[in-house]
Computed example of a mutant assay.
Amino acid sequence: MNKTSGNLVVVDDDPYVLESLSSLLMNFGYSVRAFLRGGDAVAYFAKSGGDLVLTDINMPQMTGIELLEAVHRHDREVPVILLTGYAEFSVAVEAIKKGAFDFIIKPYDPLYLFHAIEKGINYKRLLQIEKNYKAELEETVKQRTQELADTLRMLTEMSTEVVKRLTAAAELRDEETGAHISRIGMYANRIAHFLGMPDGFVENITLASAMHDIGKIGIPDSILFKPGPLNDLEFATIRKHTVIGAKILQGSAYAMLRMAESIALNHHERWDGSGYPNGLRGTDIPVEGRIVMLADQYDALRSRRAYKPSFDHETAYKIIVSGDGRTLPGHFDPEVLRAFKELATQFDDIYSGLLDAADKDVPESTPSWLRSTN
């Protein structure tokens, strides 16, 4: 006979029946632990387990059904076969309801008993195989998900690094470039967050705004770093950095780079139509361009340039809010200007390097490389 090896727990309060049944099962090749009392069998099973429990149903101290329930409290999947000398239909139904694997009437046919035990052991092992497969599948999915997350994080970090290096190349000799890039991203992040823009927009503008001046790569150094005022021809040339930047970034399939293209082209457009390169007016200017235009203007006022000293926060704030003849409040989107007024203190803190990753006001969408501007 083909059989599956297994560890059986056998219970019967009649010592002669227990001995003969145990001997029969051992002759079949099973490992058998025999008990006269159900309580002892449950204690053993709780400690050592087993592949199948075979018990008489009519025992004085603990019935077979009570033993069945006790065993299943430790392991719901172990098969329990009940033996009885009385073919009572109601008892059989109750046993099945309680989770009995099989119900065998004494005197039993040894071959039938053997097949019932084999069926139970195979059932238990199939359940274990299924459980192991599910656990392995869950672990595989978890591992692959983590691998994908790690790859995505690596690609995001790599993209951020490429953006930083590419942008720094636009103003290679400007020692303020790195801090300027970080600050523009932080300003834009704060304004977009304040205006209630979607999370994806906030995340994209935070990184894309760093490329607003990428077109300066195409401007001659003699003009870009001229210490004195620019003449009309030179000023017309430097204005071209908006178009050059848009051409460098155009045609991307990625939303962040498409936004960067828009920002590069439009961050010198003005709400009143007096900006460049296309003289767009009002809401014809993409909102990302309107946001970065103010952010860039504030940072330019705060920064020292060859043609101007650096201004403190109060002076820069007054110029943007009230105007100074060259800069006018009408240059800015009124909603973006309102956001600036509300966030002015934070702008000062950002420029001064006082906001870092520990600051509770830093939005969660802010990339780690922008969380410190020192």
Rank of each mutant, 00 (worst) to 15 (best):
I65L: 15
R33S: 09
G29S: 06
T63P: 13
E66S: 13
H74G: 00
A34W: 02
E66A: 12
D14Q: 12
A46Y: 08
I65H: 13
L67I: 03
I57G: 01
L67D: 04
T63H: 14
I57E: 11
Y44I: 03
E77L: 12
N58L: 12
R73Q: 15
A41W: 12
L36A: 10
A41Q: 06
Y44D: 14
E77D: 14
A34Q: 00
R37W: 07
L18S: 03
Y16R: 00
V42R: 07
L68E: 04
L25G: 04
T55L: 14
A70R: 15
G29V: 05
N27D: 14
M26K: 15
D14C: 06
S31H: 12
F35E: 02
L52N: 01
A34K: 05
R73H: 12
A46T: 00
D13F: 11
R76H: 05
F45D: 01
A43I: 04
V78P: 06
D13V: 02
L25D: 05
L21R: 01
E77V: 06
M62W: 04
N58R: 15
N58C: 05
L24E: 02
R33F: 09
L36G: 04
S31M: 10
E66C: 10
S23H: 04
V17N: 02
V17A: 10
D56V: 01
T55H: 11
S22T: 11
R37L: 09
V53K: 03
L25P: 04
R37N: 03
H74S: 05
L25I: 01
T55S: 15
A46C: 07
D14G: 06
I57A: 06
V32Q: 03
S23Q: 08
V42M: 04
G64Q: 02
V53T: 02
I65N: 13
G29F: 14
L24Y: 08
E66R: 12
V32N: 08
L25C: 01
Q61S: 12
F45I: 03
S48P: 06
L68S: 08
S22H: 00
V42Q: 11
D14T: 07
F28L: 11
M26L: 03
L24F: 10
V53N: 12
L21A: 10
L52W: 08
Q61R: 14
L68C: 07
R76E: 01
E66D: 15
F45N: 04
L67A: 08
G38I: 00
H72F: 09
